[in-house]
């Protein structure tokens, strides 16, 4: 049975159900226990399982270090980074410990941690709380980078992430928390390494994640009136990437536009564009286009924040340019 839940509530439900399902699961982070999380995502867990919900010191390095150690010893920690930007503080634990353990021990040890990280811009939180950190981590083989866009995906992919034996960084976009959608009551898993074709079309493939999908869908509707069919693909997991779905789509349409929140330089759009160009250059009818944020920090001023980020008009312009190439 499904009913409408918010993205935030869907994540909360997944956490409750996994706590119930597996006694080795526990949560930790700043204010995640008594307070139920800064964004309210972990509400109710401490009341039910006081021993399995830990408020930590204001130290991301301690949160992830504790997670890695307990995971190697057999637990399944779900840590929260109140803002993904602070992944820099625990970068060593993630990059040099969590991502490497399975390989260093020849597969005999693993590190099944989930790091829930609140990402993205749009709520006037300024420089340190608005960044899109995907590319900071996509360059670290050993980490799985998940970026769900809907309440349905958020619940199913978090359950899959918790049950996965590798370290997963689970990105939650703060502007999506209030987004509502159909979510089944019962626990379910969504395959982690499978992109979703959200819309079918023959002329342009748009690859986008999380909040950028809204721009893609709005542009697709507009372009439909012009007789242009847009296919929209949400990779859902950014690393390892479901290349096949993207390649098959672009082989069909011959045109690719990547819509990405975050700076253009070295963003995941660059990787997807390079991958497509490398693998199926022959199929391209037009240059690959990226629609991204500007290459500047996200400013505090609401006007500037909006100016830095891509809009539907940018997506439309990119699509029209590849169609008229």
């Amino acid at each position: 049975m499904a009913r409408k839940l918010s993205y935030a509530k869907a994540i909360n439900e997944a956490l409750h159900q996994e706590m119930e399902h597996d006694p080795s699961v526990f949560i930790l982070g700043e204010d995640v226990a008594r307070m139920g999380g800064d964004f309210g995502i972990t509400q109710g867990i401490w009341h039910k399982w006081p021993d399995r919900a830990r408020d930590t010191a204001l130290s991301e390095s301690a949160i992830i270090g504790l997670s890695v150690g307990s995971a190697v010893c057999g637990l399944r920690p779900v840590a929260e980074l109140m803002f993904a930007d602070f992944v820099t503080v625990c970068y060593d634990q993630l990059v040099n410990n969590a991502a490497k353990i399975h390989f260093m021990y020849g597969g005999e040890a693993s590190c099944p941690i989930v790091v829930r990280a609140v990402t993205g811009s749009g709520i006037r939180c300024a420089y340190h709380h608005s960044q899109s950190i995907e590319p900071w981590l996509m360059n670290i083989p050993g980490l799985i980078i998940v970026a769900p866009a809907t309440p349905y995906e958020a619940k199913g992919m978090l359950i899959s992430a918790i049950r996965n034996n590798d370290p997963v960084v689970f990105l939650e976009h703060k502007l999506l928390y209030n987004r509502k959608g159909e979510v089944p009551v019962e626990p379910y898993e969504i395959e982690l390494f499978k992109a979703e074709i959200e819309r079918k079309g023959d002329d342009i493939t748009i690859v986008a994640t999380m909040r950028m999908l809204d721009l893609a869908h709005a542009a697709a509707k507009e372009l439909e009136n012009e007789g242009v069919g847009v296919e929209i693909i949400d990779p859902r997991t950014l690393f390892p990437l479901d290349k096949r779905t993207i390649i098959e789509s672009v082989a069909k349409t011959g045109r690719l536009v990547v819509v990405q929140e975050g700076p253009k330089v070295m963003g995941f759009g660059a990787e997807i564009g390079a991958m497509v160009s490398e693998e199926i250059f022959e199929y391209l009818r037009a240059p690959i286009k990226r629609v991204t944020s500007l290459d500047v920090p996200i400013a505090f001023s609401p006007e500037l924040e909006d100016y830095v980020n891509p809009t539907m008009d940018h997506v439309l312009a990119a699509c029209r340019s590849v169609m008229s190439f």
Binding site: D202, D203, G227, V228, G229, G254, R255, E282, R285
Partner: peptide, 18 residues
């Protein structure tokens, strides 16, 4: 043809370079 309809609906596919 230019513009919309990249030939993908025709059942016959050929890459632009081919």
């Amino acid at each position: 043809g230019s513009g919309s309809g990249s030939g993908s609906g025709s059942g016959l596919r050929i890459t632009p370079k081919a």
